[in-house]
């Protein structure tokens, strides 16, 4: 077994084990931290697959952004001191159903992947870095998609801020002390 295989199986073990923890853990915080290890393992895979830029983006955007956002969500929607942090499956039947479906999907996809005759054209010469190529094609071939993605991010930012803020009563004459409590809708009614 050469070095590449050893590293591959190490990363695969990290990804699958911590992914299993994400899926099965009863504690949401543990699931969030296990998700971090899954994302790190995937970043390692991306680096092994010669896309260094994607590996760094994965760590910066997923681990540094999305995961922090998820942890914020966990903390804002759970009563940290109580037992509310725990979560459970919807029911025994649902658990078996979900396990059956996902095992079928995993086996089916694996069979499909191993039996297909992929046209394999490995990258023959290994470039120093993929950033050059990505930058050129982002600003030439994919310029429209790039701009649309920028607009999408702006819309998502505005939309998220608009959805998440507490319902303030626009009528300005109501006294602001009452409004800032949790049940402002009921006060309005």
């Amino acid at each position: 077994m050469n070095l590449e295989a050893v590293i591959f199986y190490l990363f695969a073990l990290i990804i699958v084990a911590s992914g299993g923890l994400v899926v099965l853990s009863k504690n949401i915080m543990h699931a969030a931290f296990a998700l971090m290890f899954t994302l790190f393992g995937l970043a390692g895979f991306y680096a092994m697959l010669l896309s260094d830029f994607l590996a760094v983006s994965q760590i910066m955007i997923y681990v540094g952004g999305i995961l922090v956002l998820i942890i914020f969500g966990v903390m804002l929607t759970s009563k940290i001191t109580g037992v509310e942090l725990k979560t459970g499956p919807i029911g025994k039947v649902n658990y078996l159903f979900g396990a059956a479906i996902s095992v079928i999907i995993a086996c089916g996809l694996s069979l499909l992947f191993t039996n297909s005759k992929w046209i394999e054209k490995p990258v023959d010469k290994i470039p120093d870095s993929s950033i050059n190529a990505i930058g050129y094609s982002l600003l030439t071939e994919y310029i429209l998609v790039f701009e649309v993605a920028a607009v999408l991010l702006l819309i998502a930012l505005i939309g998220a801020a608009l959805i998440a803020h507490k319902d303030q009563i626009i009528d300005s004459d109501a006294s602001s002390n009452e409004i800032s409590t949790n049940n402002d809708i009921k006060i309005k009614e």
Binding site: V16, V22, G73, I90, I105, A106
Partner: peptide, 30 residues
């Protein structure tokens, strides 16, 4: 591809069985 198939199946499992919306979101990320 096989690692990604396993990851996909685990994400489906999380979406089907989890009760907490944030864990469903984590399955989506997987």
């Amino acid at each position: 591809l096989i690692v990604s198939a396993i990851l996909f199946a685990m994400g489906i499992f999380a979406i089907i069985t989890r009760k907490n919306a944030i864990l469903v979101l984590m399955g989506l990320e997987l």
